[in-house]
Each structure stands twice: as structure tokens, then as C-alpha cells.
Design a protein around this nucleic acid. Structure first.
Lengths: 217, 217
DNA sequence: CCCATTTACTGACCGGTAGTCATTTACTGT
DNA sequence: ACAGTAAATGACTACCGGTCAGTAAATGGG
């Protein structure tokens, strides 16, 4: 009997339904300004039901982050499956990343999220936050993989351990992301304008330096 | 008559008094978990008074950020006043930064703050957030200055415009900061352990690559 | 088809917190 | 001493995250 399975599907559909509503509202008005009541209404459910599917508001936000990270992970995976030089793969990964943050503000903000819940429940195991961490590590691993390929095929020359290089690229991505989120009032944007530079070109410069680094003569 | 001045002093003392209380409590229990009532009690004032000095809770948090940025600005200024090669100045700035985030968690978290208030008041002009932005730009300018010195004295070789290089170093700093704040559960920390590396050494590697970059032969 | 049991859902309610404002208190100049 | 002003207060409101007793729907056995 497939009832169990159907129930399971319906349950997961509800979860998505809630998440979709949350993402849409969050995108319009930001996370803090979005209330659980609003999300419930949008999802055509009562507030109580939301709490059957997500432990609390923070969990719901984490779920958005998780979805964003999964999307990124998928993009990276697609890039990695191509048969191209490693350096190219790394650059395309960065491009995917830039695409995402430019197209999807909600995801971008969600990724920046600092885990608010202070692990009060010690017995609580594989929470959504946990899964986010895992995906984040997976994403990082894909970057490492691309670098390793590049080192092997000679398209990348670096003194650094691939893991460390990936870490540094990750730092740069995070920094860039934060920059992008902040109001376009600050000096950075002015620099971009006066130098007629795009984020993509900036990251390209960054990668050129790091991926083809050679010893000082 | 010095009464005006004294009043002014007292007013500014009150502001500091509130800010001090907020910083201390925030350091202990985090910003979200700290209530205005608690801050008021700590500052030995009533809650209403808090709102005479800070528009809302978000403003108060911005004020913490402002103080953190001012502290950083001061550090950078001190570094810059030394008579040393530019490359050294840059490295010492980064050191100051690392010192700060390792010694003062509250400041660190505050700097990461994304402006929550959605500029609902259009007439509101030089808000604290505005000032933060200015200081941030000033800090960035000091970095640019150090790089320019380095380019002049030959201790820094780069194809990049000093402003762009400063921007990239700023990205890296932000990325590092975010990394530092997040739980030490993730892969990054593992990498640090297995490579027996400190944050300082990592940043040093980064700077070595960027400050002494030469063309591919 | 009926009824008992489980499962899913609801929305009134609660506790707590950010922010307000009429009132009180302290201070100042005359 | 007193009027006028500035500063401080804390009871109060509005709102929101989270709960839970109660309701409805689905299921499955007889």
C-alpha cells in the first residue's frame, strides 16, 4: 500500500509550500520584517501548522539558506562535470556564484546568515543548520577538486595547498557577497564606477593572481 | 557661561553610559538576547531615557559598530604614522585587525552587522549608519594610503590600482571575519589544524601573493 | 457503512519585548 | 521663591513568536 509514501510526499509538499511562501515574502520585505502570520497566510495554512514543519522561525530561515546552498552546490557540480582545464572550472564556479547573488537577493542574504539559535537543545541532532554546514563543506570540496584538477593539468600554478587556496577563494567570495548586499552608498561602488569595472572582472583579476602565481624572480 | 557645555558633556556621558552597558551585555549574551530593559537597568536609567539618546534598538547596535570601526580606524592611523615600508604597513594593519577580532568578539560581531533598518525615514539624514559608512570608507582610505606608500617605495609590486587592491584586501578581511565568527565546526577549522596554520599566517600568505605580484614570465 | 483511532490542522491565547507618552522630577535664570 | 524649561520616568500599548487544547479529516478494522 502506497499510503505511507503518498503521505510522505504530501508532507514534503507542505514543507516546500511553506518554504516557497517564506522565500517570496522574505525577498519582498526582508526576513526580520516578515512575520510567521504572513507566511502562514501566504502558504494558506494556519500559523500552528508552520510549527509542525519547522521548529521555529530561525529554522525556517536556515531552510532558505539550505536551499540556496543546494542550488550553489548543484551549479558547482555541473561546472565540474565539464572536461575543461581546472583554472577554467574555478573561474566558472565563481561566475555561477556571481550569477546567483545577482539574480537572487533572498538567497544571497540567506547565505550570509549567522546561525542565531544558540544550540540550546543539546540532544537536537541533525538540525537544518547542521545540514547547511555539510553542504557548505561539500561546496568547498568541489572547489578544492577543481583546483586539484588545475594543478594536475598545469593550468594552475600555486605554492599553496589546494585546500588553503579554496579557503582563501571562499573568503573572497564571502567578502564580495557582503559587499554586494550592503547599500550601494559606499566607496567600493564609486571605485567600480570610476574604473568601469564589474564584479566579474574584479574576481577575474583576483583569480588570475592566485591561480598563476609564480615565485618572485 | 559654561552651563551649555556642561550639559553637552553630561549628555554625551549618558550616551556613552548607555553604550557601555549595551556593549557589556551584548558581549555576554549576544545582541538579540539583550533587551532594552536590561540595558536600561545596567546603565541605571529607565528605558524611556534610552530612547532619548538612541532612536531604536537598531541604532544602538549601529553605535556599537561605529565604536568598533573607530577603534579600527585609530589602530590603522597609528600604524600609518610609522616610518616603514608600505608593505610592512599593510601587514601591520592586517595584524591590528586580527588582534581586534580575536580580542573583542562583540566588536567583531557588530562589524558584521547588516543594516537592519530599512531606511523608512527618508528625511532622516546623518544617522549613525551613515557615520559608520563614512568611517568604513576612511579605514579603507588608510589602507589605500599604505599601499600607495608601498608602491612608491618599491616594497609593493602590483598591476592593480591601489584602490582596487585595498578593496580586495577588504573583501578578504570581511571573509575572514565571517569565517572566524561562525562555529568552529566547519571544514575550515579542520584545515587549520591539520596544516598547523594560524589566521595570521594565512593572511600573510595572502598578502605575500598580492603585494609582490609579478607578471608571468 | 459505522465507529474508534490516529494524524493533520486550527486559531485563540500567552509571554515577552520594542517603543510611546503623559506625568513627574531636576535644574536654571530672574 | 517661582516660573519655565529640559530630562527622566515607568506604566502602557501594539505586536509577534510560539503553544496547545480543541476540531476536522483520514484510515482501517469489523
Amino acid at each position: 500500500m502506497g499510503i505511507k509514501e503518498r503521505k510522505e510526499r504530501e508532507k514534503s509538499r507542505r514543507r516546500d509550500q511553506i518554504l516557497d511562501a517564506a522565500i517570496e515574502l522574505t525577498g519582498q520585505q526582508g526576513f526580520e520584517r516578515t512575520t510567521m502570520d504572513e507566511i502562514a497566510e501566504k502558504a494558506e495554512l494556519s500559523k500552528g501548522t508552520l510549527y509542525l514543519y519547522y521548529k521555529d522561525k530561525s529554522s525556517l530561515y536556515q531552510a532558505i539558506k539550505k536551499r540556496a546552498l543546494q542550488s550553489l552546490h548543484q551549479d558547482f557540480l555541473t561546472v565540474l562535470q565539464q572536461d575543461k582545464p581546472g583554472a577554467m572550472l574555478v573561474k566558472e564556479m565563481i561566475s555561477s556564484f556571481l550569477d546567483m547573488i545577482q539574480k537572487n537577493v533572498t538567497f544571497t542574504k540567506a547565505i550570509m546568515l549567522y546561525r542565531g539559535s544558540e544550540s540550546s537543545d543539546s540532544d537536537q541532532q541533525s538540525s537544518i543548520a547542521e545540514k547547511c554546514l555539510n553542504i557548505e563543506n561539500d561546496v568547498n570540496m568541489l572547489m578544492v577538486k577543481a583546483i586539484q584538477i588545475g594543478v594536475q593539468d598545469g593550468s594552475i600554478t600555486t605554492k599553496l595547498d589546494p585546500k588553503l587556496l579554496a579557503l582563501q577563494i571562499g573568503f573572497q567570495m564571502r567578502g564580495l557577497l557582503q559587499f554586494y548586499i550592503l547599500d550601494n552608498k559606499n566607496m567600493g561602488v564609486k571605485i567600480f564606477k570610476e574604473q568601469k569595472l564589474t564584479l566579474g572582472e574584479l574576481m577575474d583579476q583576483f583569480l588570475n593572481i592566485h591561480l598563476s602565481h609564480v615565485e618572485k624572480p
